[in-house]
């Protein structure tokens, strides 16, 4: 699938970052995201590369939309994250966006 999947940036090391997707962590690249990205930002990940920074105002809605259609299609989501054996925890991811200082 070519959907891309939203995740939260946990830490950044040069062009690499650790990102969290519903409690599944994955290393992704920031080379082509096209905007300045900081810890706590949300990005759209596709094939291990952030291809878009999700605007702060759209994070909550984006996560809710993805959660509603990925529930029941967890395998597809895990394939898109690149973590086939992991377990997604829906409902966990929004805490970062809501809880951090802006």
């Amino acid at each position: 699938m070519c959907l891309g999947i939203p995740g939260e940036i946990l830490e950044i090391d040069g062009h690499e970052a650790r990102a969290e997707f519903w409690n599944v962590e994955k290393t992704i690249r920031l080379d082509i995201v096209g905007e300045s990205v900081e810890r706590g930002d949300y990005i759209l990940n596709h094939a291990g590369f952030a291809i878009r920074k999700i605007p702060d105002t759209e994070v909550e809605e984006t996560i809710a939309i993805y959660e509603s259609f990925l529930e029941g299609d967890e395998d597809e989501a895990l394939e898109e994250i690149g973590a086939a054996d992991a377990v997604l925890e829906f409902g966990e991811q929004q805490s970062g966006a809501r809880g951090r200082d802006r």
Partner: peptide
């Protein structure tokens, strides 16, 4: 793949 994977391929070559 199309542009969504071609751009990452380009990025690793750069």
């Amino acid at each position: 793949g199309f542009e969504t994977t071609a751009a990452p391929t380009a990025a690793v070559l750069e």
